[in-house]
């Protein structure tokens, strides 16, 4: 196995809810992320999938230091990042960058593309102003945009092109890890495919490791070598891609896969879909035991244990990890 770059252990992020008065004491906490662990190797891509509110974006933001983790550790090549101050974080920013979801909101509308791309270099005092400008040109070219558009503004580009600018900005510091927060979910299908291909190409060219957050399983399947599935702030399954898609261990993963509509009428007509009952419970007040048990189609096969005891993520046959009593 290749070298481990990032090691996340028992990461938790709880948000205070309710009135934060002058005393600063919140009423209660929203457990957005609870006990999440995974690692990321050089040059690999790990998908983090789940439905809205499952904590995948919060996990990404806690890893990159946008949120201070409530508990747990985030280690970059052995160096603990979870408790660093903004200033101490600075050198590690060059190693880890992020791509955002919304191509319209992630670029400062008042900056030219050139200054957007130069800014990270300025912050980290890399090169002279002229070198930075040249690097910005090279970056535009690397993401498949015309370098001549250096002096244009974001609003003069289409959604897909803006997303490329966002990718170029993340690449400016030549990081080892890119955290991609739903980078293609706001794009149209034909543009989405272009960006997926670009991400694949850049991964090879720069030997990048991706932590790829998405709700679209098909996209993850095309980009990631390993996939972690999250539900209500916890990882319920981690496996190699083919294993996860062909033979999912956790009932939630199975339901999720079965819920995805296939772009093929013949397949759609023939298949039996597992339709989960009810809604995703609120993370304010998660169910006892396994948080999936109220919706789980398999709960009758295990019994009372599901509602009383939370399953832990442990290794199952074939090297995959799942948190389910059914597999015990």
């Amino acid at each position: 196995m290749t070298e481990t770059l990032l090691e996340v252990k028992n990461l938790a992020k709880h948000f205070p809810i309710g009135s934060v008065g002058l005393t600063g004491r919140p009423d209660h906490f929203l457990r957005a992320v609870d006990d999440v662990s995974f690692d990321l190797h050089r040059g690999e891509s790990l998908g983090l999938v789940g439905e809205s509110g499952c904590g995948k974006s919060t996990t990404a933001r806690a890893v990159i230091g946008l949120h201070k983790p409530t508990a747990g550790s985030v280690k970059l090549e052995g160096q603990e990042l979870a408790h660093l101050s903004a200033r101490q974080w600075l050198p590690y920013r060059r190693r880890m960058q992020m791509i955002f979801q919304d191509p319209y909101a992630s670029l400062d509308p008042r900056q030219t593309v050139g200054s957007i791309l130069k800014e990270p270099l300025t912050i980290h005092k890399i090169g002279k102003p002229r070198d930075r400008r040249l690097r910005a040109l090279a970056l535009l070219d690397a993401v498949g945009l015309n370098p001549r558009y250096l002096n244009r503004y974001p609003h003069e580009f289409s959604g897909g092109q803006r997303q490329r600018i966002g990718i170029a900005r993340a690449l400016a510091l030549e990081p080892d890890i890119l955290i991609c927060d739903e980078p293609v979910s706001a794009l149209d299908v034909s543009i989405q495919a272009q960006v997926i291909n670009l991400l694949k190409e850049l991964q090879e060219r720069f030997n990048l490791a991706y932590l790829f957050i998405a709700h679209d399983l098909a996209v993850v399947r095309h980009l990631c070598s390993r996939v972690a599935v999250m539900y209500l702030g916890r990882v319920v399954e981690v496996a190699e891609r083919d294993q996860l898609f062909e033979n999912p261990a956790h009932p939630y993963t199975r339901a999720l896969l079965s819920a995805v509509p296939h772009a093929d009428p013949a397949v759609e007509a023939g298949r039996e879909r597992i339709v989960l009952e009810g809604d995703v419970p609120s993370p304010h007040n998660p169910p006892s035991g396994c948080s999936f048990h109220p919706r789980c189609p398999e709960r009758d096969r295990v019994g009372a244990r599901c509602s009383s005891e939370a399953p832990t993520l442990i290794e199952r046959d074939g090297g995959r990890f799942a948190a389910c009593h059914l597999e015990d």
């Binding site: 990159i64 230091g65 920013r93 992020m98 909101a105 992630s106 400062d108 800014e119 912050i123 966002g166």
Partner: peptide
């Protein structure tokens, strides 16, 4: 997101 991006840049 662009403010978050700036923070991620350091």
């Amino acid at each position: 997101e662009f403010i978050e991006a700036a923070r991620v840049m350091g």
